[in-house]
Amino acid sequence: MTAGEANGGQIRTATDGAGGDSRPEARSVSGAGGVRIVYETAGATGAPAVLLVHGFASDRRSNWVRTRWVSTLVDAGFRVIAPDLRGHGESGRPRSLAAYGLSAFRDDLTAVLDAEAPGESVHVIGYSLGARLAHDYVQTHPERVRSVTMGGPPVEGSFAGFDLAAARSATATISAASTTAASTATASTTADGSQALNGETARYVGMASSAGNDPEALLRLAEAVRRRAFRPRAGAVAHPLFIVAGEDDPVHDGSRMLAAELPGARFLGLPGRDHVSAVTSRVFRAAVAAFLTELEEGRRSDPSGA
Rank of each mutant, 00 (worst) to 15 (best):
V148P: 04
D107C: 11
P263M: 08
T140K: 10
G269F: 00
M150T: 01
D253H: 13
R79H: 06
L258W: 00
P142K: 03
R226L: 09
N63W: 06
S178A: 07
V50F: 07
D302W: 07
R282F: 10
G87A: 08
A131W: 02
E200S: 15
A187F: 15
V70L: 04
V205H: 05
R300P: 08
R231V: 14
S304P: 04
Q10I: 13
R256A: 03
Y127K: 09
P24I: 00
S175H: 09
P154L: 05
T189I: 12
V138H: 11
A185Y: 13
G269A: 01
R68D: 13
T280C: 08
R86C: 06
S277V: 13
A76C: 08
D163A: 10
V155F: 00
A245C: 15
L258Q: 00
G19K: 03
T15M: 03
L262N: 04
A131V: 03
P303I: 05
A165S: 14
L219G: 06
V225D: 08
G206Y: 04
I125C: 02
L73A: 01
V65C: 10
R168N: 10
D192N: 14
I37L: 02
R146Q: 09
T186P: 03
R220E: 15
V225C: 01
S121Y: 09
V155P: 02
E294H: 07
S91R: 06
P142M: 09
A44I: 10
L113S: 01
G55W: 01
L270A: 02
A14F: 12
E40S: 13
W64K: 04
R79Q: 03
D253C: 00
E296Y: 03
A117G: 05
E296C: 01
F56I: 00
S210V: 11
L221C: 14
T186L: 05
E216L: 12
G130H: 03
A57Y: 01
V288M: 01
A234S: 15
G152Q: 04
H239L: 13
G87F: 06
G92L: 06
I243H: 06
E200I: 07
H54Y: 01
A290N: 07
A44N: 08
N198P: 08
R95W: 05
E116T: 06
S255E: 01
A26K: 10
R299E: 09
P263F: 08
A229E: 13
V276W: 07
R12G: 08
L52M: 13
Q10F: 11
F291W: 01
R300L: 14
A42E: 04
E120D: 15
P83T: 09
T201H: 08
L102Q: 09
R203M: 11
D16V: 12
A42I: 04
R61Y: 09
V35P: 01
T15D: 14
Q139K: 15
G199W: 10
S62P: 00
V155C: 02
V53A: 05
D16P: 00
P154R: 11
P142F: 08
D107V: 15
E261C: 05
T72H: 03
E247T: 15
G89H: 08
G92Y: 08
A278R: 11
V53Y: 02
G4E: 15
V244F: 12
G151R: 02
S277D: 11
G157I: 03
P118Q: 12
H123Q: 10
A176T: 10
R106P: 05
R266N: 07
A234M: 10
L262R: 11
A76S: 14
L73K: 05
